[in-house]
Design a protein around this nucleic acid. Structure first.
Lengths: 227, 227
DNA sequence: TGTACATCAGTGAACGCGCGTTCACTGATGTAC
DNA sequence: TGTACATCAGTGAACGCGCGTTCACTGATGTAC
């Protein structure tokens, strides 16, 4: 306590004197966002009050206004942060999946799911926020989340163009496939967040099977069904 | 106005003197539930107040207590009603799909989706309530909804046992397939509720394709992958 | 059918409480010289 | 380095408001005779 925290040791609750006014302001801002995310783990954003957030963060209600216009602005920041998490995950997943000249094999599926699970553990609160507000009571949040997931699916659709058979498909069919794969992963995340730790293995195993069944259908797919 | 409403003419807002005290009580109860569902179309249950509901229903706040213990009990009733809608849909869908000696064909898929769409139009508010609270902020509601959807998927898994190839699968694989099909339909419902009327055709067409791709994979499915 | 009493769905006033937001403030940090 | 002043993150009191819940009530409906 009498010295600075040892170099290289990052402790969540490391007590160290903030170096400057702006740094200390940033700390308060972070603790407000953190407090909101904590409360959102079992509440809808809709029902969160400004005073609850400041109480959880350990500052006075008025301090809130030094950082945000109101709860709506804080919500927007949470969305942006959560999308940051999502995008970094997508980047990793695309790298790991390594779509190329091969069909979408078991390995690609397993590696992708591993990336999702890793990010889920690192950004649980962000992912829960997205899952909860995706169809929640706040229109602006729903729209923002929808747009972001759409974007993700469209990126995957483009990636899929290099996969052998899928490369011959129409763009619409590719979007259908990528949308189904993305939705299957999103659903897994939502279920994992809602289930206890003991449900984890069953859910991931089922999801892996689902992804395999979907890709199994690829070689026999016909865009328009038989007469 | 001077006479009773004509026999056989059912008008939503038909003004007729309630025949009895209990009948008039029931009318108020219905209007409280209706008011809640109306407000829930763009709000989370979490954030709904008792006074808002009574205001919307056009009665005094105190009247609420003649019908429900509090908001939580009203929520439970909404869940039960919504599940009533869901179960009647499932019954229709199972009858229409007519799973039997044939593979799951385009017709079965189309008929099933038609049933879902019909029920969606008749019970929009109930379905929206389920979609919103499925991963919403109220634990009890999440659990109830999860259990009900699980049940639905398990029923479908049992039905699938009569389908040629699927009949040879392990029970676990059949549950995987039914879970994926159910989730695909639930996702369609959620998207339809969130999109404008002009999104409807695109969403249903994509869903139909997704279901066809899934069933396309069935003949080539191997429970454990190669290698 | 008429009368006298019981029931009870819905009312309106009142309560204490947490809410969002304002305001003038305090005192540590930052800056100019 | 030391001093005098400016900045500004966070405070605490205060406001008016909508909340859930209580209570004694009213008056239409129901029932007993």
């Amino acid at each position: 306590m009498s010295r600075r925290t040892a170099v290289g040791v990052k402790t969540r609750s490391a007590v160290r004197r903030p170096a400057s006014r702006s740094e200390s302001k940033e700390l308060t801002r972070r603790s407000l966002l953190h407090a909101a995310l904590t409360l959102l783990s079992e509440r809808a954003f809709d029902s969160l009050s400004l005073r609850e957030v400041t109480r959880e963060a350990g500052v006075s209600p008025t301090a809130f206004y030094r950082h945000f216009d109101g709860m709506e602005e804080l919500g927007q920041v949470l969305v942006e942060e959560s999308f940051g998490s999502l995008r970094s995950m997508v980047r990793d997943a695309r790298a790991e999946a390594g779509l190329g000249d091969d069909a979408i094999g078991e390995d690609a599926i397993r590696r992708t799911l591993a990336v999702v699970l890793a990010h889920l553990h690192d950004h649980t609160a962000h992912f829960r926020f997205i899952a909860r507000e995706r169809y929640g009571g706040v229109h602006r949040l729903r729209r923002a989340i929808h747009r972001e997931l759409q974007l993700f699916a469209e990126e995957l659709a483009v990636d899929l163009a290099v996969v052998p058979i899928v490369g011959q498909w129409s763009a619409d069919d590719r979007r259908m496939l990528s949308g189904l794969l993305v939705e299957t992963m999103v659903h897994m995340v939502a279920e994992l967040l809602d289930a206890g730790a003991d449900g984890e293995e069953g859910i991931t195993r089922q999801t892996e099977k689902r992804m395999r069944l979907i890709t199994t259908g690829v070689p026999s797919w016909r865009s328009v069904g038989p007469g």
